[in-house]
């Protein structure tokens, strides 16, 4: 399943490393990354491929607690959510 991981928070050392490391150990492949600093806030979107059969609820919970550790807010959502809202096809 394709999903979007969003990370927002105060910029600091190690955010990308922390998120990427978690995704790697969860066998989640990163397909695309876009990142910017908006008004001092670190904002990153990652398009990822979640392996079939992965427990999505557990994944979301673990990413939320990783966010607490890194001092940022991390969410993972099925990509279809964004497609449904912004695209007429697919």
């Amino acid at each position: 399943m394709k999903a979007i991981v969003t990370t927002v928070g105060q910029d600091q050392v190690g955010i990308i490393a922390g998120v990427s490391q978690y995704l790697a150990q969860a066998h989640i492949n990163i397909l695309d990354v876009s990142q910017t600093i908006m008004a001092g806030y670190f904002t990153m979107m990652m398009a990822v491929e979640v392996p079939a059969g992965a427990d999505f609820t557990q994944l979301a919970t673990e990413l939320t607690s990783l966010g607490h550790t890194l001092g940022v807010e991390i969410n993972i959502r099925n990509e279809q959510l964004y497609r449904a809202m912004h695209q007429l096809e697919g």
Partner: peptide, 11 residues
């Protein structure tokens, strides 16, 4: 998917 659209949904 554009960053701005993802942010709009999140907001």
């Amino acid at each position: 998917m554009e960053l701005a659209k993802i942010q709009e949904t999140l907001r």
